[in-house]
């Protein structure tokens, strides 16, 4: 039941316990209890909204930074990752397999701001060997949602 509820909430954070209960054929109380528990256990972290900022004339700039690091005795990659993810500019931080180690998604008000962050905050961190910055030019799809030009349903109104 938990997984089913989470799947519905992941798709629509505004689904009410009442509606979820109807969709799953269970009681509202049960759904509310399961959600509360999931929140307490940190299984549900936050309810967010997916926004197409391009349509809001937002001036923000995003970049994906590939970071190569030297893992440290005892803490491996974790300590360096923490030093990076503590910065609010770092919106997502992942440990990667392949040619680099950490992928850092950074948001800033301008390219300049991101360059400053990389040059003054990220690169100087001890253990960071190299960082290459790739600016995001256009978002086509985010979290499974196509940002622009979502397909319309082209159906006839009545079909027997």
């Amino acid at each position: 039941m938990l997984k089913k509820i989470l799947k519905i909430l992941e798709d629509d954070a505004r689904a009410t316990p009442e509606r979820i209960a109807t969709m799953l054929g269970t009681s509202e109380d049960e759904v509310t209890a399961i959600i509360k528990k999931a929140e307490a256990e940190g299984k549900i972290l936050k309810y967010k909204t997916l926004i197409n900022w391009d349509k809001v004339n937002d001036e923000h700039v995003w970049a994906l930074i590939e970071v190569q690091v030297s893992p440290q005795r005892d803490t491996g990659y974790d300590a360096i990752a923490e030093k990076i993810y503590r910065f609010p500019q770092a919106r997502s931080v992942y440990l990667m397999s392949g040619t680099y180690d950490l992928a850092v998604l950074v948001m800033g008000k301008s390219m300049h701001e991101i360059a400053d962050f990389v040059g003054q905050k990220l690169s100087p961190i001890e253990g960071v060997r190299a960082a290459s910055t790739h600016f995001i030019m256009r978002r086509y799809k985010e979290d499974g949602e196509i940002m622009n030009g979502k397909e319309e349903i082209k159906r006839q109104p009545v079909i027997l």
Partner: peptide, 27 residues
């Protein structure tokens, strides 16, 4: 179809929510 008239009517009204289809809404 006995409900031909109904179909014609349907074409002339805007803002209709249709529960009248017989196919998936997925592409």
């Amino acid at each position: 179809s006995g409900i031909r008239k109904f179909f014609d009517l349907l074409g002339s009204i805007e803002g209709v929510i249709s529960l009248g289809v017989g196919e998936p809404d997925y592409t």
